[in-house]
Design a protein around this nucleic acid. Sequence first.
DNA 1: GTTGACTTTGACGTTACGTCAACTTCTACG
DNA 2: CGTAGAAGTTGACGTAACGTCAAAGTCAAC
Lengths: 249, 249
Amino acid sequence: MEWSIQDVARLAGTTSRTLRHYGELGLLTPSRVGGNGYRYFDQGCLVRLQRILLLRELGLGLPAIAEVVDGGPQDTATALRTHLELLERERERIGRQIASVRTTLRKTEEGEQLMAEEVFDGFDHTQYEQEVTERWGRDAYQSADRWWRSLSQADKDEFQRRQRDIAKDFAQAHLAGRAADSDEVQAITQRHFDWLSITGRPAKPYFVGLGEMYVADPRFTENYDRHGEGTAVLVRDAMRVYADRNLTD
Amino acid sequence: MEWSIQDVARLAGTTSRTLRHYGELGLLTPSRVGGNGYRYFDQGCLVRLQRILLLRELGLGLPAIAEVVDGGPQDTATALRTHLELLERERERIGRQIASVRTTLRKTEEGEQLMAEEVFDGFDHTQYEQEVTERWGRDAYQSADRWWRSLSQADKDEFQRRQRDIAKDFAQAHLAGRAADSDEVQAITQRHFDWLSITGRPAKPYFVGLGEMYVADPRFTENYDRHGEGTAVLVRDAMRVYADRNLTD
DNA sequence: GTTGACTTTGACGTTACGTCAACTTCTACG
DNA sequence: CGTAGAAGTTGACGTAACGTCAAAGTCAAC
C-alpha cells in the first residue's frame, strides 16, 4: 500500500509543497520514487510524518525535529524540555512587552509628548559612559534610557524625588560614619534597589555596574556628593555588598 | 551639528547597517548626503530614530512604525492597541503550546509509545470525512486527530467511557421521545460539550460541523445508533440548538 | 605616502514553507 | 486515439529585519 504525494498531504492535513520541503531536508524521504520522478509514500512514512507534524505543532524547529525523529524517546524528552524552557522564556518576554506597550499606550493617550526635545540629555557624556557601559552591556543601558525618555514629566519628577530622598539618606548615613555593609546603609540600598526595579528587576552585573558608574560618571557622582562629599563611593560599595548578598548570576 | 553614521549608531545603541536599512525603507533619511556618498544625521534624525527604536522594542513591525512615526499620537495609540491585541493572542497561544508540550513530555517520559502503529485508524474513511471537514476546516480536525493519537491507551479508554455514557443517555432520551431542545437533552448536550472541551473549547462552526458529521459519517453514527436507531439525528439537532443558544459566531 | 578607521554599494543567509512558472505525466472521456 | 484537466516535477523568488562578509573608495593622522 502506498500513496501519492497529494494523497499523503490530504491524509495528514498538510500540503505537497511541505512534503517536498521535508524531502529536501532529508526529514521525510519517499519510500519509492517512480521512473517518472513521482514520489510515493508507505505506511512507515505516514507514521513518521505524524510525529514530525505533532512536534512541529508544538513549536519545535525542523532541525530539532530531524535530530529527534530518528532517536528514541530519550532524545525526544530532552528536546521537549529544552523547548519548554524556551517557550517559557518567550512567554515571559511577551508578558514584559505587553506591560511596556500598555504603559506607552496610556502615555500616548494622555497626550504626553512622547520623547520630547530633550532627547539630548545624556548624549554629551559619551566619554565616561562608553567605558562603563562596555562592562555591563550597552543594550541594557540604551533600553533603560529609552524607557526613561518615554516617561511623562510628572513621572520623571516623582522618580527623581524618590531618588533624592534616597540620596539624602545615603549622605546622612555617610556623615554618621556608617559602613557600606551596615544594616542601616543596606536598608537604604534596598530602597534604592526597589526604586530601580520599576523598569524590571535589575540583573546583578547591571546593578554592580551601575554602582561603578555612580563613581565614574561625574553626572551621577554629583547626584550623591552634593549632599556630602564621598557619598557616591559609599553608595557604590553598598551596592556591591547588596548585590553579593541578595542577587544571583 | 551633525553626526556620521557610526556616531549615530553608537549614540542610539544600534548599528550602521540598521541605519542604512532604515534608509532603504525610507524610515529614516539622512539630513544630508555628502558628495562622497557619506550619510550625515542631525538632531531631528536622532529624535526620529529614538521613536523608531522605542516602537521596535515594543515589538512593532517596521511597516507599522513607518505609518506611525509621521502621524500624530492618534495613529500611535491605534497602532499600539492593535499590537497589544496581537501580543495578547500570542501569549495565549504560547500558553496553550506550553501546556501541550508539558503533556507530550510527560507521555514521552512515561515511556508511552507516542503515536503507535494504529496511525491508520481514521485513515480509511476519507470519503465522508472529506465532505464534512471541508465545511469547518480540515486543520482543526487534523490537529485534534494528532492530539488524540498522542494520548495513552488509558486516557483514550477513559475518554471513550465518558463518551459511551453520554451516548447511552442520549439514546435513552431519544427512546423517551424527548425533543432536541428539551431541558433534559440540552443538559446531556452540555456534558457532551464539556467532554469535547478537553482539547480546548470548541468553536461554534466546529461544534455544529461535528454534529453533522455524526450523521454523515457511519463510523460516528454507529456510536450513537447502536444504543437506539435515530439517536445520531437527535444528537445533531441537539448540538445545533446548543450552539445557537450558547456559542457565538 | 602609508596606515588604519570609516564609508559606500552589493549580495547572500536566516525560517518554513507559499506562490508562481514552465514543463511533463497520468487519467478519463468522446 | 486525441485531448482536456488534474496532478506531478524542478526551479526560483519572497517573506522580517537585519548580520555578515566582500570589494573598493574616502578621510585623518603620522
